[in-house]
């Protein structure tokens, strides 16, 4: 891991919301093909950190580079840079007035400037990767939550990003629909996608993550391989959090 430069390098990230100090100097490095899991109690700042990485939130200070691009520089074309960072949201956020195909094709056409035919061909290929090619003509309202989230994944990967961010991708799903989304994420990982996942799916973290980052109160408390962090957490804070999760 040390040889290749990191895809994501965030240093000293601070974020204030008014008087609230949500991130208090967070560093996060993600290597190519790495799957990093970010866990922590609600309010720990993990979602905010994720949203800083593609500048949906503007950090108060710090530096972020993604694939060598300075994400916080005024001279960076943020819309071009964001194509390299796919994002999947807790509430899917599919466009309800467009079909699954339309959802995936929109940025291909309007951001990447592809023709309708080419954009739709690529969109179909992306839907095929999440096994929803047969739902291309369906509107989000006609799809289950799990299918909607997989369309959202297709919408992000269609742009061929260098890294994918998942913000609690299964939290809004009924339990029986979680499996399909996790399977899609696992396949993505097997294809070599670099991923940063904020989630409470500890089983998935243990099975698939390369590294788990535990955050609390706007700081990274500790991080390490899942076996280490879950098996022998060093910090009291981590132990308390994991204990609470276990009891559920």
């Amino acid at each position: 891991m040390a040889q290749t430069p990191p895809i994501v390098a965030a240093h000293g990230i601070h974020k204030h919301f008014g008087t609230l100090h949500v991130l208090k100097g967070v560093d996060l490095m993600v290597a190519e093909r790495e799957l990093v899991f970010v866990i922590g109690p609600s309010g720990s700042g993990k979602s905010t950190l994720l949203r800083c990485l593609n500048r949906l939130e503007e950090p108060s200070s710090g530096s972020i580079t993604v694939d060598g691009i300075d994400m916080l520089s005024r001279s960076t074309d943020i819309n071009a840079a964001r194509q390299r960072v796919g994002m999947v949201f807790q509430s899917f956020n599919l466009y309800p007035h467009m079909t699954a195909l339309g959802n995936v094709a929109l940025a291909l056409r309007k951001v990447q400037g592809k023709s309708r035919a080419e954009a739709e061909a690529r969109a179909r290929a992306a839907l095929d990767r999440v096994h929803l090619a047969d739902r291309a003509g369906h509107f989000p309202g006609q799809l289950s939550g799990g299918q909607q989230q997989r369309v959202a994944i297709a919408r992000a990967i269609a742009l061929e990003p260098r890294v994918m961010l998942f913000d609690e991708p299964t939290s809004a799903l009924d339990p029986e629909l979680v499996g399909g989304v996790l399977a899609a994420m696992r396949e993505l990982r097997e294809d070599g996608m670099t991923m940063v996942v904020v989630s409470h799916e500890m089983g998935f973290a243990k099975a698939a993550a390369d590294r788990v980052v535990f955050m609390a109160d706007g700081l990274v408390v500790e991080q390490g391989p899942p076996a280490e962090l879950f098996g022998a957490p060093r910090h009291e804070r981590t132990r308390a959090f994991l204990g609470q999760i276990e009891r559920h």
């Binding site: 819309n79 194509q83 796919g86 466009y95 929109l106 940025a107 309007k110 951001v111």
Partner: peptide
């Protein structure tokens, strides 16, 4: 919902494109 704007912006659409489409 604000999530619509965020999702669109996260794919690289500009503010104006997001409004329009």
């Amino acid at each position: 919902p604000a999530g619509q704007m965020e999702a669109a912006r996260s794919t690289g659409l500009t503010r104006w494109q997001t409004m329009r489409y």
